[in-house]
């Protein structure tokens, strides 16, 4: 038995959103009578951080403290319409809708404050700490809370805003098949090191080094964690997971977590992530979001590394010990592709 080390490389340009049908997302923002803000969405937080990021975006645009903003994504019956959490679209699509809604609400808030302070609305600014003040004369100020109380109980205004993100529908050109399905791309490159046992066909991932360009990382720690967790899932898809191990034959398909293979806490590997921040045009505060591509490039990187290690080119996933051993037998032995 010999252990062969291999290194694989893969890179990805990943589309943000899905323009067929205009890809709309809506957001509604309103203040409560005590000057807190509620952002209503139907975009769902699956753990990717939608609630945290939209909360940051709304607070930044409104000019109020983060602690004063709440995000409600609970119910698609009572919330405004959204296409959904898929296509790596959340930060970009929903974020843009939240900015539009928060801008409208901010304008009403400043108009209400102007009426209370008896100044022109154009002379007002927010300090981000819960106050609205006259530019250059911060002593002339009113709290957001008092502004909301005045709007609600004496002026009769609703401090609220509506936002929608929509881009022109891209139809497929019947002659060329050309279309513009997306509005921006995120990018990544991955180098993956692993080792293959040529007697058992077993693969162990040793280390991953990756670089991701996701626009501005609106919440850097969450971006990093999504990339690390997503890469784990990518490796899991590459080496373990399938519902039809002998596809198209449906036999031996797993029916529960006992039979469905996934790496556990004992199979973690070192992953060094570099996040390159290049704020994207038209994206909310420059953020495109990592989305699905945190998992995708790992699959070809694993396949390339297995080829580099033992010379077996697997063209079906997952890359199981059985497939590797059959490949080694067909080649008449392990054929390492170059010494590192």
């Amino acid at each position: 038995m010999t252990i062969h080390k291999g290194r694989g490389f893969a890179c990805i340009n990943y589309p943000i959103g899905m323009n067929l049908g205009g890809d709309p997302s809506q957001a509604l923002v309103h203040s409560t009578p005590d000057g807190k803000f509620m952002v209503s969405l139907s975009a769902i937080d699956l753990g990717q951080g939608m609630k945290s990021v939209t909360r940051q975006i709304a607070a930044e645009t409104l000019g109020v403290p983060l602690a004063d903003v709440y995000v409600d994504t609970a119910d698609s019956d009572s919330g405004p319409h959204d296409m959904g959490s898929f296509a790596s679209r959340g930060t970009h699509r929903v974020g843009n809708a939240v900015i539009q809604a928060a801008k409208e609400a901010r304008n009403v808030m400043l108009e209400a404050a102007a009426e209370e302070l008896e100044v022109s609305v154009n002379d007002l600014e927010t300090d981000g700490k819960g106050n609205i003040q006259v530019k250059g004369a911060p002593s002339r100020s009113i709290t957001v809370s008092d502004t909301a109380i005045a709007a609600q109980f004496s002026q009769g205004r609703t401090i609220s805003g509506r936002g929608i993100f929509l881009i022109p529908t891209s139809d497929v050109d019947p002659d060329t098949g050309e279309m513009t399905p997306v509005s921006c791309f995120a990018h990544a490159a991955v180098v993956l090191d692993l080792q293959v046992d040529d007697e058992t066909g077993e693969v162990e991932v040793l280390e991953i080094n990756s670089a991701y360009e996701v626009g501005r990382a609106l919440n850097p720690k969450m971006v990093e964690q999504q990339l690390i967790g997503g890469a784990w899932m990518g490796v899991s898809h590459a080496l373990y997971e399938t519902t039809e191990p002998y596809y198209p034959d449906r036999s031996h398909g797993p029916v529960d977590f006992n039979q469905y293979l996934m790496p556990g806490p004992g199979e973690v590997f070192n992953h060094n992530v570099a996040v390159l921040e290049r704020p994207a045009e038209g994206a909310p505060y420059g953020g495109k979001g990592p989305g699905e591509m945190c998992a995708n490039p790992l699959l070809p990187a694993v396949a390339n590394a297995v080829y580099n290690a033992v010379g077996v080119r697997c063209d079906a996933l997952p890359i199981t010990p059985e497939k590797i051993l059959r490949g080694i037998m067909a080649n008449g032995g392990a054929k390492p592709q170059g010494v590192r």
Partner: peptide, 20 residues
């Protein structure tokens, strides 16, 4: 020992490392 203790718990999102 930490890995052993959580080996009966499945996590789908984090890749386990931050939990450990």
């Amino acid at each position: 020992e930490v890995v052993e203790a959580i080996s009966g718990n499945i996590c789908r999102c984090t890749g386990y490392e931050p939990i450990i």
